[in-house]
Nucleic acid binder design. Structure first.
Lengths: 218, 218
DNA sequence: CGCACGTCTGAACGCTGTTAAGATCCACCG
DNA sequence: CGGTGGATCTTAACAGCGTTCAGACGTGCG
């Protein structure tokens, strides 16, 4: 029993756990450092021997959560039916959005906490997992290599955007079934769009000066 | 001169202005209600005659900002070259992302503040503007009506996601030029994908049981 | 065995959001 | 025109917050 000892021994990890539980229960900012300390059975000031500030604790927690998401996404892609690159990417997107919905407060924390020191790399970062998946698509020739540069921004934006809209309550879907469907549709649409990006046949009836990026206003 | 008067007269609006300025200067949470009050030249408790709590003030501010965004998006779509529905939607997306980048802290506030009373409708809400634009696309036959239901989630997710990644510092693009380009590419990809959604010719070499949504794992 | 260092405590600081009671000004009614 | 009610703002106070600092406590190394 590690309780009741003067030296806690694993206070750092315990504080992170308590903070995560509090975020889950009361939202990103609905708790105090004193509260987390009390839950662990320790004086408020004890935390400062492990984190320079409350914000630092939150950032560390955020990194932990993001890394967990990265692992989850990698596993989800790996389990995709038929191990087909396209399917793998769909699974990535579905899993990303599901993760956000299963624990909205923690998901909000993960990315809203303002990146900490970028020299402490997060591994595996969801972004890197996505990059690997897109590279697979190029390898099999399903994604033209001309459309590859920056494609991760497009896909990540789409998936992350849906997750954000859902966790922030701006959009409501009924149940994980509908959530899955929408996520899959989204990834599918984005992918299709990327593949057809510079297709010769233009899907849109455009005015004459089609290729000039001209537009009104500053 | 409205200063120095005991009755401020427009304290409510002045507080909102001060709060917005503070958000711009120091971030979503880098300021206090007392600070905003002081800036307006008023005692801290005075704010409570106009807002039930600090959170309520922030939510009200958020609504004001979202409505301004809605107007901006509508104007941007209206200014689109040739008034073509496809171009209009591109302009919508570009303007949305630009708005976020021009004032990242305020943009974060807008959507991160947790919706207030939904009975106080925001007009024009960016979502509604988007819906109108998509309906235009259906009207001209550019978007099949079968792909229309829920399409606003897909497009909104994509655009909002890019804006979020940028304002949260998860992705960095160099300059508004690159931002515009990425935003346009994103909307273009999503639209193309939506249009081709149920195209008979499958872009992906899929295993036989293509249409069954079966996938491994819970 | 002793001692130094990492770990935690206790008390205190200034600041926060919020509340209660009282001062002040304005608009309206007689 | 005089007075009064109610909205508006002030002053004072509260508990709780993040953070700091001096000191008590254990542990492990010499």
């Amino acid at each position: 029993m590690s309780k009741e000892r003067y030296h806690h021994g694993e206070l750092r990890a315990a504080l992170l756990d308590a903070a995560e539980a509090l975020v889950r229960e009361r939202g990103v900012d609905g708790w105090s450092l004193r509260e987390a300390s009390a839950r662990v059975g320790v004086a408020p000031s004890a935390a400062y021997h492990h984190f320079p500030s409350r914000d630092a604790l939150v950032r560390t927690l955020s990194e932990r959560v993001i890394a967990r998401l990265g692992e989850r996404l990698r596993r989800a892609a790996g389990r995709a039916f038929g191990d087909h690159p396209h399917r793998r990417l769909i699974a990535y997107g579905r899993s990303y959005v599901r993760w956000a919905m299963e624990d909205p407060a923690v998901a909000r924390l993960a990315f809203a906490a303002g990146r900490s020191d970028p020299r402490t790399p997060i591994s595996p970062h969801p972004h890197d997992v996505l990059v690997a998946e897109l590279d697979r698509l190029v390898d099999t020739g399903e994604l033209p290599s001309t459309a590859r540069p920056g494609a991760e921004f497009v896909v990540w934006a789409a998936v992350h955007g849906l997750a954000t809209l859902l966790t922030d309550g701006l959009v409501e879907l009924d149940g994980p079934r509908a959530t899955d469907r929408e996520a899959e549709r989204l990834v599918d649409a984005v992918l299709t769009g990327l593949v057809r990006e510079q297709a010769p046949e233009q899907p849109w009836p455009t005015p004459r000066s089609a290729h000039s990026q001209r537009h009104a206003g500053p």
